[in-house]
Every structure is written in structure tokens, then in C-alpha cells.
């Protein structure tokens, strides 16, 4: 069992969740509450990582994170470090490839909140910010939890993009899914099995938590 790879995987998944919580909330809230030209294109771009082959997405990310590119170059000049084949680059890539997994459930949740509830909150004297905190956020909670669990599980299990962006540097970019692939190549089936079961268990537990929580929440809020 490669504990270091597990630690990297968990760290990457948690950091991606922490980053995508505010980013996802912001994007999904804006998309659910505003109508603008190009909204369809905007949603398509956010959903793109869901349908693109991971290697294609990985290739484009690798090119844009390279030190000769605008983003990669700017990062090098700011920090002196390369984004490609680094944990930070991997983290940035994870935010992008998990974006649809965070935005879609949150967006659906915000869209399901009846506009009258918001208007009622305003008529009850609540500011827009308080309405968001006291009414919309609690009502969208099941979607937010689903978004975080999907982001966590997806980041934990991603293989193609991780390999393209991070390579396979132990202690830096070598995640559990890469370690499983290495073990299989080296005919270390017992180790591969142990790590695969670990990933399976984490995925099962997190998804079960979501279903249980969402059922309770739906029961509470049915009207």
C-alpha cells in the first residue's frame, strides 16, 4: 500500500473541494439567477470536462500550464516554480476538470428554489445577502453536499488528466490511481488490489453519506 500516494490523493481531493465550494457557489448562483446572452456557451464550457476525453483535457491543460504559455509563464515569474508536473499545477487542473461536478448539482439546486421564496424573504425584510444565507443556502444544501462529494470522489479517482499534468513524481504528483496503475504494470497485484479496495471503500462511504443526507433533507423540506 502506497500511503504517500493516498496522502497526496486525499490532500488533492480536499483542496479541490475547498476551492470549488466558493467557485461553484458563485458560478451556479449567478447562472441560476441571471439571464444573459451567451449563457448557453458559458454552461457548455463549464460542462466540457465532463465529455472531453481526460487525455485531451490533460493535453490542453498541460500546454496552457507550460512555462512558455501565458499562465505557466506568469506563475514562473511570480513564484519561480513550474506549474506543469507540480502539485500546484495538478491542483489547478483538478479544479478545472472537477468544475462540472461541482457546478451542475449546485445549479440544479438553486434552480429548484421557487422565486417566490426569495421574494417572500425580501418582503419579510431580509437583505439579499441574508436571503442567500438563511433561505437559499439551506435549501440548496443537498445540491451543495452532492457537489462536494462528487468533486471529492472524482478528484480522488481521476487518472488521465493527472498523468498528463502531474506525471508520476512520488511525493509530489503520484496519486493513488497512478500508484495502482504502476503496481499493475509491475505485476504487484496484491498491492493494486489493496489500493483499489481503499478507493472503492472511500467512494462507497461518501456516496452513501450523500444519499442518506439527501433523503433526510428531502423529507424535511417536501411541501
Amino acid at each position: 500500500m502506497d500511503w504517500q500516494a493516498l496522502e497526496i490523493s486525499l490532500k488533492l481531493a480536499l483542496l479541490t473541494c475547498a476551492s470549488l465550494l466558493p467557485i461553484g457557489l458563485f458560478i451556479s448562483y449567478i447562472l441560476s439567477r441571471t439571464q444573459f446572452i451567451g449563457r448557453g456557451l458559458c454552461e457548455a464550457i463549464i460542462t466540457l470536462p465532463l465529455v472531453l476525453p481526460p487525455t485531451v483535457l490533460g493535453f490542453f491543460l498541460l500546454v496552457s500550464l507550460d512555462q512558455d504559455s501565458f499562465i505557466g509563464g506568469a506563475f514562473v515569474s511570480l513564484t519561480g516554480e513550474n506549474l506543469a508536473f507540480s502539485f500546484t499545477g495538478l491542483w489547478l487542473a483538478s479544479i478545472i476538470y472537477s468544475l462540472p461536478f461541482a457546478v451542475q448539482p449546485m445549479l440544479r439546486s438553486f434552480e429548484q428554489i421557487a422565486p417566490e421564496l426569495r421574494e417572500m424573504a425580501w418582503c419579510s425584510g431580509l437583505s439579499k445577502w441574508k436571503t442567500f444565507l438563511k433561505i437559499e443556502l439551506p435549501l440548496a444544501w443537498p445540491g451543495i453536499i452532492t457537489a462536494m462529494v462528487l468533486t471529492f470522489s472524482h478528484t480522488l479517482g481521476e487518472f488521465g488528466v493527472v498523468l498528463m499534468i502531474g506525471g508520476n513524481i512520488a511525493g509530489e504528483t503520484r496519486t493513488l490511481s497512478i500508484a495502482i496503475y504502476d503496481s499493475v504494470l509491475a505485476f504487484e497485484h496484491e498491492q493494486a488490489q489493496m489500493m483499489s479496495l481503499t478507493l472503492l471503500a472511500i467512494a462507497l462511504v461518501t456516496i452513501s453519506i450523500v444519499y442518506t443526507f439527501n433523503r433526510r433533507q428531502r423529507h424535511l423540506m417536501r411541501l
Binding site: 421564496l117 417572500m120 418582503c123 439551506p138 423540506m221 411541501l223
Partner: peptide, 19 residues
């Protein structure tokens, strides 16, 4: 804005906060 008008509003479907 609605918050500055002291209005008591009963909506058709009541719009009670379900949570």
C-alpha cells in the same frame, strides 16, 4: 426596495420557508 416597504404579503401558494 421591498425591504424598505413595510408590506405584509400572503402569496397564492403561501411561500412558506420549507426548512
Amino acid at each position: 426596495i421591498p425591504q424598505q416597504r413595510r408590506v405584509g404579503f400572503v402569496f397564492q401558494n403561501y411561500a412558506l420557508f420549507p426548512h
